[in-house]
Structures are given as C-alpha cells and as structure tokens.
Simulated scan of single mutants.
Amino acid sequence: MRPEDPTDDFETQRPALLRLAYRMLGSMAEAEDVVQESWLRWSEADREVIDSPAGWLRRVVTRLCLDQLKSARARRETYVGNWLPEPVVDAPDPALLADNLTYSLMLALERLSPLERAAFLLHDVFDTPLEEIAATLGRAPASVRQLAVRARRHVRGERPRYPVDPEEGKRLAKAFFEAARLGDAAALTALLAQDVTVRSDGGGKVIAFPNTITGVDKAVRLYCGLAQKFGGHRAELLDVVTVDGQPAVISRIGDTVQATVLEFSAGRIAAIYVMRNPDKLGRIGRRLA
C-alpha cells in the first residue's frame, strides 16, 4: 500500500518530468506549468492502484504536453522572426543532463509532428518501454516504432559529429565574443565554418534579424556591421555557460541581455543561436542577479 503523502514519489520523479516537458515544449515556463498540473492529478489519484508512479506520471506529462503543442504550433505560426527554444543553463543535477540532447537538436525536434516528437523522446531519449509509449499515445506498438523511426531520420543530421571539449568550447566562445565585439573580420573568419548559420530570436519584443543568415561571408559582414553600428565598447561579457551541452555566451548590449549558443563542427562554429527575447531570458537574468 502506498503512503498517504504523495509527495515523496512525485519529488523523486520531478527532475525527469520537468526535463521531458521542456524537451516536448521548448519552454521551461510551460514545462513547469505542465509538471504542476501533473502534481495536482497525482495528488488526487487513487495511488493504491498505480503500479509504477514513474510510468503513470510520464504518461500524464506527455499527454498534457501533446495538448499544449496543439495551441503552441498555432502561436508559432504568427511568431515574429525565428523561433528558438528557451536556453536553459545546465544545472548541476545529473538527472537534468542525462538525456544528452543539444540545443540544436531541440530546434530539430520542432520539425517533427507532436506524436513523432513524443515517440522519439520517450523511446530514444528516456528509454521508456514500447508498450508504455503505445498506451500513452493511444497507438499500437508497431505504429509507435514507425513514429520513432521517422523522427530519428529527421533529426539524425542534427547530432553533433564533432563534440567540443567543454574547456575548449569556453575558450572559443570567449574568442568569438571578443571578435564579434570588435568587428574583427579576420578572427571571425578563422572561428566560423564556411556554411555557418546564424539565427536570432527577439519575439517581436526587441531588435533581432528575422531571417537566418547563412555562410561565413554574410555572418562576418553581419557582426562587423553590428560592431560598427552599435560600438563594440557597449557589449559586455557577463558569463560563459553551457546550454544543453553546448557553449554559450551571456552578454549585455546596452540594456539588452542576450544568450548566444554556439554549435561546433570540426573545431569551428557551425551554428549560432542568439536569444534576445526577454520572455525567454528570465531564468538567466535571475541567475545573473
């Protein structure tokens, strides 16, 4: 018989539930709301008939996320400019890092249907038994397997083939910040891959470039132009952190804080994700405070 107090079982599962919801939704604020709703349902459930608290809670969180994604997709169709996941600085709790998904993979998940996303995360990332996934999604096990296969095919190209050493990543991130601050074209060219892409998310709240910049020449011109226009002396390095296993620079330009996540390939920066939307930087702001 399970204890009357439902807190212990739930708190044991909370970190994994929060990470699952964040991976599903790309927003930690929305993930926290989903986990809180799952707590309410857990506290009211007949826990004596629940064999596996972890499985029951995973199922509830997944279904709540699927409902949330229906409205989220509609909102993102009218989103101003690029949409990027909320950058969450890696916490010391190993349970929050165990899924080993990078920030770029989070963005790749956006191209999947909600069911493909759920099947991939539960099957490939959280090692959930196939029968449990089938029950959660209301699909036959064979159908779930096909969903996971399709999802895997879509995201395979986004897995980093050349993961950078954490300390080397921080060194290169600092070098990139300094080169961008000064508008140093030679240094930027040496740091960036030939096919580098730059995406910026302002959410219509602050200035950001709406389209993806592709290619080293365009990226170098962009950063040199920004340094000339706004003055490199106004850019301040606040911290170098890790976001989902990838180096990131937290900086301030004037009154605006931004997080720049870097993806590396063969020792060069292959993708740059610039988060400027203040709605997605609240946690980073509180961390700095």
Rank of each mutant, 00 (worst) to 15 (best):
L40K: 14
D184H: 00
F177N: 11
D165S: 12
R268L: 00
T128W: 06
L109V: 04
R73V: 04
P53Y: 01
M28R: 09
R150T: 10
D90F: 05
L17T: 01
M1P: 06
G169I: 03
P3K: 15
L137V: 00
G285M: 11
L288G: 05
W56I: 11
T12K: 14
L17Q: 04
T214D: 15
E236V: 02
A186T: 12
V240C: 07
R2Y: 07
H123C: 10
I269F: 06
E32P: 00
R221L: 04
L281R: 02
I272S: 08
E37M: 12
R153L: 08
L172N: 08
F264K: 12
S104Y: 11
I250K: 10
T136I: 06
I272N: 00
F10M: 15
S43L: 01
D33G: 03
L25P: 01
M28S: 01
V149D: 09
V34N: 05
R41T: 01
G202L: 12
R252M: 09
P210A: 15
G81I: 08
R153H: 01
R117A: 03
I133T: 11
V144H: 11
S265F: 01
R75L: 04
A108I: 14
I213K: 13
E77H: 04
Q68V: 06
Y103G: 01
A45T: 11
A74L: 11
L147M: 04
V240N: 11
A190Y: 14
I272F: 05
S251L: 13
V35T: 10
Q36V: 13
L101A: 01
R14F: 05
V220G: 02
A21N: 14
Q194N: 13
Q36F: 12
K70P: 05
V240S: 07
R41K: 05
R73T: 02
R159A: 06
R150K: 13
R76K: 09
V240K: 14
T212F: 07
V257S: 09
W56Y: 09
R161V: 02
V35F: 04
V243G: 00
E110H: 14
L64D: 14
T7Q: 13
L122T: 07
S143N: 13
D67R: 15
G225Y: 06
A271E: 14
V241S: 12
A148M: 15
P163F: 03
A173S: 03
A148N: 14
R152V: 07
A219P: 01
D244M: 10
I250D: 06
A185N: 09
L281K: 07
D67K: 10
V220H: 01
D165E: 14
A108L: 11
P278K: 15
L17I: 07
V125Q: 04
A271F: 04
Q246F: 02
P278L: 15
E11M: 11
Q246W: 04
D67G: 06
D244R: 12
P94Q: 15
A259K: 11
L40M: 07
S113L: 05
V198E: 02
H154M: 15
D255K: 10
G55R: 15
A135K: 14
A119L: 00
I272H: 05
T256I: 11
D217Y: 09
V243Y: 06
L137G: 03
L288Q: 13
D33Y: 04
L122I: 11
F264W: 08
A151T: 00
R19E: 08
T260Y: 06
K218Y: 08
W83G: 03
Y223K: 11
P94M: 14
G267K: 15
L109T: 09
V198T: 10
L130H: 05
D8A: 09
L25F: 10
